[in-house]
Every structure is written in structure tokens, then in C-alpha cells.
Amino acid sequence: MSRRYFELFVSSFVISAFTFGGGYAIVPLFKRKFVDDLRLMSEEEMLNLIAIAQAAPGAMAINTAMLAGYKTAGLGGAACAVVGTVLPPLVVISAVSVFYRRLRDSYAVSAALAAMAPAVAATVASAVWSLGRGVIKSRGGALAALAAFVAAAVFRVNVMYIVLAFAAAGFVSGFLRPGRGGR
């Protein structure tokens, strides 16, 4: 058990330390570590956890880490994942808070970040591609993905409301067609 805790802590630490920018930048790292390398969950379950993470308040990245920890090793696992995620920012920011204006104005640092941004975009694009092939299996699924995309990209609807709306729709249609469970 303690090895599992340690593994969760280290994985969350590494994922957090290499997440630059917000939100979904964490998805490719998360998928690589928890789905492909450690095989702690399937792609489908990862998307389930991301959906749950977004139905709660707070940052999606930390909520997803918490859920992965919870799934693997219960509440203790969730705690390990949270500590692992929070530690890199805490260390880095405490260290740079003294000279952050120099960091902010450093040409080399902005060049590094400018070079990293397209790479991060590529990791997200690549994750969408490989997840899409595994998850979209029916016309209904493709339609749901398209609807969520349009709501977020075109109408700028808050993602939490999108997730809750789809959850409610799934719940209602499950009741209207008992036994089939939407499959």
C-alpha cells in the first residue's frame, strides 16, 4: 500500500511539474502516466474522472489528480495525489517570489516559454486524437462531442454547466429508456 501511495505522489508531482498553462494541458501528461504507463485506468475511465472533476468547483487538474488517487488507493491515495500536485508550485513560487520580476523580464525565460507553448498545444491535440479514436463509437457519441465543442468554443458556455447539462440529459434519457442505459 505504501508503495502505491509513493507512486501516486511521484506521478502527480511529475505531472504537475511539467504542466504549463491551465486546464487541459494536464490531460496528455495524465493519460500518458495513469493510462499508458501505470495502467491504473482505461481511457474511458479517465474521461469519466475528468467529467466528475469538472462537475465540482475548483481547478480541473487538482480535482482529476484527487480522483485518480481516490480510485487507486482511497482517501489516502487522494491525499498523496493532492500533495504531489501542490508541491511543485509551492516550491517554485516560494523560491521565485523574491526575484519574480527578474524572471518575468528575463528574455531567456520568455523564449523558453514561447517555445514550450506550441509543444503543449501539440500534446493536447495529440491526446484529443488518440482519445477520440477510443471513445467515439457511435453517431450519438459524435453528436454529443460536437454539441459540447460548439457550446464551449462558439458560445463560450462555462464548462461546469456543459458537464452538468450532459449529466442531466443522460440521467433523464436513462429513465425514459429503462434497461438500456444509453449503450
Binding site: 498545444a121 477520440g132 457519441g141 460536437l146 459540447a148 450532459f166
Partner: peptide
């Protein structure tokens, strides 16, 4: 399972939207 089978593609659509805007 019904709720989740609808949420998974929706979340994928959201990640795709993020990929488009970040790119």
C-alpha cells in the same frame, strides 16, 4: 453508465475545444 457514456464524448468535445483555442 448511461450518464457516463454521454459525458465521455462531451468531455472529449471540451478538450477538443481547448486544443483549438490554445493552438
Amino acid at each position: 453508465q448511461g450518464v457516463m457514456s454521454l459525458l465521455r464524448p462531451a468531455v472529449l468535445g471540451l478538450i477538443f475545444s481547448a486544443a483549438v483555442s490554445v493552438t
